[in-house]
Design a protein around this nucleic acid. Sequence first.
DNA 1: AGCCAGGACTGAG
DNA 2: CTCAGTCATGGC
Length: 221
Amino acid sequence: MALAGRLMALHERLLAHYGPLHWWPAESLFQVVIGAVLTQNTAWSNVEKAFANLRAAAVLDRASMSALPVEDLKALIRPSGTFRIKARQLHALLDWLGDDWEGRLRHGSLEQTRTSLLAVHGIGEETADAILLYAAGRPTFVIDAYTRRILTRVGVRPLTGTYSGYRRLFMDHLPPDPALFNEYHAQFVQLGKDHCRAAPVCTGCPLKAVCETGTMEAGPR
DNA sequence: AGCCAGGACTGAG
DNA sequence: CTCAGTCATGGC
């Protein structure tokens, strides 16, 4: 089957299993932006603890958080781990966003905005795409560790194993539909959480019929 | 007691 | 440009 067809079939199989996920577990778009940084190499449960602190301190808006001294920010986001680094990253991001942060994310072409965002300290490809897709509704595909593992498991391999290799796999073969990209990546994360650590084999995994390797652990990273 | 989580930066080679 | 080392908390 052609790649486009395989990718859509995979998505539909997951849709049949999970139904619409309406994803990114945040209360506001601003929290999507902040959460994208806080969740770097971190369990979401720890991000939630940080959000609880930020909410209690009433700094869950760009202006308040931007005005907050770095030392104070460190203390509040501590439960999310690597908090010294993340505090600095958040301030760099907030500066780049400016007052009209929603406009900043939507302004310009997707690739221009993405490149500009990638120049911000602490914003790598996955974080940039997560912000652009989930906070700004831009049609860019998010690649994470789950996505790579699952694709390997079902035998879909991009030209190169780099981030952009995986990203182009989706963006070159699917229509640039933010709702589709949103749902698709959400399905990968959900599936990863449900079955990624369920060694040795995925009992009840919706992709069982199309698995090639038999174990979720196989594959890059 | 480790190991790891929805990464990204840095310095070496 | 590739890659190990580093960051750091909380859950299992």
